[in-house]
Simulated scan of single mutants.
Amino acid sequence: MAETVQFDLVSPERLLASVAAREVQIPGAEGDMTALPDHAPLITTLRPGIIRVSAADGDKEYVVTGGFAEINGESISVLAERALPREDMTQEVFKAMVDEATDRLANAQEAYVNEPGPVDEATKLLADMVAVGGHIGLSAN
Rank of each mutant, 00 (worst) to 15 (best):
A2E: 12
Q6I: 11
L9E: 05
L9A: 05
V10C: 10
V10A: 09
P12R: 11
E13Y: 00
A21Q: 00
E23K: 05
P27L: 09
A29T: 05
A35G: 11
P37L: 05
P37V: 04
P37H: 02
D38I: 04
H39G: 06
A40T: 06
A40C: 02
L42Q: 15
T44E: 11
L46S: 03
P48V: 10
I51F: 04
V53G: 00
S54V: 14
A55V: 01
A56S: 13
D57N: 04
D59F: 00
K60G: 00
V63E: 01
G67N: 10
A69N: 10
E70I: 11
I71M: 15
I71C: 12
E74V: 08
R82K: 14
L84P: 00
D88E: 14
D88F: 05
D88H: 00
V93M: 11
D99L: 15
E100D: 15
L105K: 15
A106Q: 09
A106R: 13
N107A: 14
Q109G: 11
E110K: 08
E110T: 10
A111R: 15
V113F: 12
V113R: 14
E115W: 04
P116F: 09
G117L: 14
P118Y: 08
V119F: 04
A122V: 06
L125G: 07
D128N: 13
M129E: 05
G133Y: 00
G137H: 04
